[in-house]
């Protein structure tokens, strides 16, 4: 059986490869909600996110021209940030001494 550490590290590595590498090949068509909003017409009511001009908006690093690098680095930053927040949250929540 795979050890806990090896299992978690393998999962993190796969996530990093997907967000940092495979994300470049993601389909860039509008997603389901966006397409429905376009087809029906309420897309006009969308407003820009207040952070729409920040460094990582729309999964790209601002100022990086190379598309592959831009989305890849943004994805890796997302992996690290999600890992830090969720890892911290769940480690705080866990029972340290299971009673059963």
């Amino acid at each position: 059986m795979m050890s806990n550490r090896k299992f978690i590290l393998t999962g993190l590595l796969i996530s990093a490869l997907l967000a940092g590498g495979a994300s470049f090949y993601a389909n860039s068509n509008p997603d389901g909600l966006e397409k429905v909003a376009q087809d029906i017409g309420f897309i006009e009511s969308a407003k820009d996110n207040a952070n729409a001009d920040t460094a990582l908006a729309d999964y790209g690093v601002k100022g990086v021209e190379n598309e592959r690098l831009s989305v890849g680095v943004a994805g890796l930053i997302g992996v690290v940030a999600t890992g830090a927040i969720s890892g911290g949250l769940f480690l705080l929540l866990r029972r340290k001494n299971p009673k059963n």
Binding site: N4, F7, I8, G11, L12, I14, S15, A16, L18, A19, A22, S23, Y25, A26, N27, S28, N29, P30, D31, G32, K35, Y59, V71, G75, G78, V79, T82, G83, I85, S86, G87, L89, F90, L91, L93, R94
Partner: peptide, 28 residues
């Protein structure tokens, strides 16, 4: 607890991978 943290990371990563569904539409 570590698997819960990993699950969040994995879902973030896979949510970036939009796949084509129908004409001009993607999903993730």
């Amino acid at each position: 607890a570590p698997l819960a943290g990993l699950t969040a990371v994995f879902i973030f990563a896979v949510q970036m991978l939009n796949f084509p569904v129908a004409a001009g539409t993607s999903g993730h």
